[in-house]
């Protein structure tokens, strides 16, 4: 039906325009999910969220095509004891960024629906307090690989 598509296309375009400017305010970089040994039902994803708006925004929910549930978690360390707890939101300051990194805030992937191996990627969606949503394709990285990356590159790699 040509008349419908002629009508629908501008409508869709206008809807996208409404969402467009908002989506540009929060961006994600350096995202990865951690590869897991076979049999592991949980993993974690890490990323850097940048907020270009003046107002702070909160990450309030996340989901993945490869895990039953994705929760926001944080780590704290007190006198050598490490604790991991679920948190409701992660705030990204206005004109600032927040890193979800090993040992700190992270996305906990619970109930993996498949083994996450180095070289795979998973779908990850993020929902923010102002209604923004981001749909990401996130690479899976082995902890060994990310650790090698943190070293200064001259280490010999015995594998």
């Amino acid at each position: 039906m040509p008349s419908f598509s002629r009508f629908a296309a501008p409508l869709l375009a206008s809807l996208l325009c409404v969402a467009g400017p908002a989506l540009a305010e929060v961006t994600v970089s350096d995202a990865y999910a951690r590869a897991v040994p076979p049999g592991q039902s949980n993993s974690a994803a890490f990323l850097v969220i940048r907020n270009d708006a003046d107002e702070a925004v909160r990450l309030i929910d996340a989901a993945s095509d490869s895990a039953g549930v994705v929760e926001l978690h944080t780590h704290s360390e007190q006198d050598g004891v490490l604790k991991m707890r679920r948190i409701d939101a992660i705030e990204i300051p206005g004109r600032g960024e927040h890193s979800l990194a090993p040992g700190a805030d992270h996305l906990m992937l619970i109930g993996l629906t498949r083994v996450l191996s180095e070289g795979d990627s998973i779908g990850l969606s993020l929902e923010f307090s102002d209604g923004q949503r981001l749909q990401l394709d996130v690479p899976v990285k082995s902890i060994m690989a990310t650790m090698q990356g943190m070293q200064n590159g001259h280490q010999h790699h015995a594998e």
């Binding site: 592991q40 039902s41 490490l82 906990m108 015995a158």
Partner: peptide, 27 residues
């Protein structure tokens, strides 16, 4: 514990990367 998603695998990776820094005989 194994379902520890972050701190334990990181520590075990440090351990085993430490092993891999050794010569084959040492390792």
């Amino acid at each position: 514990y194994a379902s520890c998603p972050d701190v334990c695998p990181t520590s075990l990776a440090v351990m085993t990367q430490g092993f891999r820094r050794l010569s084959d005989d040492e390792q």
